[in-house]
Design a protein around this nucleic acid. Structure first.
Lengths: 96, 96
DNA sequence: TAATTTGGTTTATAAAATAAACTTCTTTAT
DNA sequence: ATAAAGAAGTTTATTTTATAAACCAAATTA
């Protein structure tokens, strides 16, 4: 096949946005990701779980004062996957 | 929202591959697209229909000798959509 | 003439995305 | 002190999408 497969975990608008954020921001809290992506909390929760299950991100739960706080960070695996995804996408986009 | 929405019609591996082919090749026959994308005929047929329904491509059916022949071409609408999609994607990928 | 191949379409199933409903705890207002 | 509202998520249900399997008609090959 001339087109490489696109990692289905990354080929999703919301998950890609999450990863994109985590690459530039190093770490981000749930509400911040929610605000930046415009996603609903439910959708975001589900997609974060999927990324975490694949070890693309790490999720750390703690308390900020009395409130629960969920922090996400990208992993080396996730970074590699993102880079590979971008590379693969280029085969589709660099049409010349 | 800081991430633009990605046209769901294009944010699909197979449909994107089809569009990518049609941009470089101007026109392509069903079996050629099938071979280049590695898709099954059924899947390809469905996805071509969706692109045609949105007027992203035009499908022309004829006969080549005795055999049916399905030719696909991208439309100006499709080209515009593809360009917009690429532009939108860059917001996700150009992480710096 | 029977089996196989070509060129597809239609239908059914599996997987994914998304939203709606719910939970727990906190803060604010009465 | 208590009720209402808000924050921070999770769980579950629904819808959509992708994909494969089954099918069909005509042509070719054995």
């Amino acid at each position: 096949m001339m087109f490489p497969t696109l990692d289905p975990l990354l080929h999703s608008e919301l998950r890609l946005a999450i990863m994109s954020l985590l690459i530039s921001d190093v770490e981000a809290e749930f509400p911040y990701i929610k605000e930046q992506t415009g996603a609903t909390a439910g959708n975001l929760s589900v997609q974060i779980d999927k990324l975490a299950a694949a070890d693309y991100i790490k999720v750390e739960k703690s308390f900020k004062g009395k409130k629960p706080c969920t922090i996400c960070r990208i992993t080396p695996t996730g970074l590699k996957a993102f880079e590979d995804y971008v590379k693969a996408l280029k085969s589709y986009l660099d049409v010349k």
